[in-house]
Amino acid sequence: MNWHLIADVVAGVLLLAGALLSLLAAVGLLRFPDLLARMHAGAKPQVLGLLLILVAVGLRLRSLHDIGLLLVIGLAQLLIVPVAAHMVGRSAYRTGEVERDDLLTDELSPAVDESGDD
């Protein structure tokens, strides 16, 4: 049993899966109708795609300090992407970039209108 070969094969599979998810995230960015829908594409498949690629790189490099660096990148993504999506979504909603009439339910509108800012 050759562990290096197995690690390489797994890394290859993860790399392809990560690349595919990133591609589909890009397709979503192009095809979704409005900004908030696009943020979903920018957040979920993009983050998982990158995480899979980081794991693949880690399996291929197999050195401790490279893996440490990959961990930092992965954790930073998990923390920063939701915050970025939040900030973009928040300002889009408040500046009227979101078609509120297209929403099935909108429970934020009254809250924003009454309080202005928080």
């Binding site: 908030l36 943020m39 979903h40 957040a43 979920k44 983050v47 998990l78 923390l79 992407v81 939701p82 915050v83 999506a85 939040h86 979504g89 928040r90 889009a92 909603y93 934020l108 809250a111 924003v112």
Partner: peptide, 14 residues
């Protein structure tokens, strides 16, 4: 809030 944004279907916007 952070976790919800990465969960199926939801993004926290406010």
């Amino acid at each position: 809030a952070e976790l919800l944004t990465l969960l199926p279907g939801s993004i926290v916007i406010e």
